[in-house]
């Protein structure tokens, strides 16, 4: 499991595992409900999950590890399995979006590093021309990780920057283009429209374009609203959950996945470049539940 073990610090989810296999007669569901709520899963997703588990328990008379396994399956069932496919012989574009402070710029750089490791030829584009030193931040990352970067003037039009980036990638024959955009709250309509324009500029010529929403693991219920609105404007193809190495477990992922069916693309499990890993829902859920250890 390796790096995924970082997720389980804190003990919230492990409580569930011990609770489910405890085989007691007391009402485990109330405690399960409390735990899921405290993990940011949200009230309605929590109630659904619990109903489902209750149904299965009474139908199949589940107990102990069987009950835990059923719970694990329910969680896994919520997370969509589809993921993003990249073409080797074409330009794949990743448009990185999200609210302020979710970790877009850092993630864009780490993604570049990841793809370089995978023998792709990535190019970074600093289209966050709004935040003071947003461009410099990505440029410094690029320098550190030895990645090429398109760094425009501050205040340049993000659509134009994205367009130039695409042209540059085509000219240099890069096969991955990572476009970092300025953070914006989903409630800012004109900024959301601006993103839509950036996407439109990039989607010419049927390139393999993917819109990636970056979400902080510490997000509460507003994360679902972020998901809804970014998805409404941009048709989000995948999520990246950052900062999973803290004490927050990103339970909002279940609420988002359940409603919007957006797959999780990658997970940020630490501050180092190599700590951004492809998301693996089994490892994720198992880490949450300390599944393997509790059952063997």
């Amino acid at each position: 499991m390796g790096i995924w073990k970082r997720i389980k610090r804190g003990g919230l989810w492990e409580r569930i595992a011990s609770l489910l296999i405890s085989d007691t007669d007391k009402d485990i569901y109330e405690e399960l409900e409390e735990t899921l709520i405290q993990a940011d899963v949200g009230v309605s997703a929590t109630l659904d999950i619990i109903d489902e588990l209750k149904n299965q328990q009474s139908e199949k008379n589940l107990k102990g590890t069987d009950l835990l396994t059923a719970f694990r399956e329910i969680l896994l069932g919520i997370l969509p399995v589809a993921t993003i496919h990249f073409k080797d012989n074409a330009l794949n574009i990743l448009l990185i979006v999200g609210v302020n402070g979710s970790g877009k710029t850092t993630t864009a750089a780490k993604l570049g590093f990841y793809f370089k490791q995978q023998n792709y030829s990535p190019l970074l584009v600093a289209a966050d021309t709004y935040r003071a030193a947003g461009i410099e931040q990505l440029s410094l990352w690029a320098q550190k990780l030895q990645l090429p970067v398109i760094a425009p003037e501050a205040g340049a039009d993000p659509g134009a920057v994205a367009f130039d980036g695409r042209e540059a990638a085509l000219a240099r024959e890069n096969n991955i283009l990572i476009v970092d955009t300025a953070g914006r709250l989903h409630t800012q309509k004109n900024l959301m429209e601006e993103l839509r324009k950036v996407k439109k500029v990039l989607s010419k010529d049927e390139h393999n374009l993917h819109t990636i929403l970056v979400l902080d693991a510490i997000s509460g219920q507003n994360g679902l609203e972020q998901g809804r609105i970014f998805h409404k404007y941009l048709n989000v193809d995948g999520l990246i959950m950052t900062k999973l190495d803290g004490t927050a477990r990103g339970g909002i992922l279940f609420a988002i996945a359940r409603e919007l069916k957006i797959p999780v693309f990658m997970a940020g499990l630490g501050e180092k470049p190599e700590d951004l890993k492809p998301f693996n829902s089994q490892l994720f859920v198992d880490s949450l539940l300390e599944f393997s250890e509790k059952t063997t």
């Binding site: 402070g101 709250l185 902080d216 219920q221 507003n222 004490t247 927050a248």
Partner: peptide
């Protein structure tokens, strides 16, 4: 961050235990 979820208690507790915070600014 105003968008922080349930984990706000953990982070606040730890920052306060370690540093003794005198106030909070809620952003976004």
């Amino acid at each position: 961050d105003a968008m922080t979820g349930q984990d706000a208690v953990n982070l606040a507790q730890k920052f306060n235990d370690d540093l003794g915070i005198t106030g909070v600014i809620l952003t976004k």
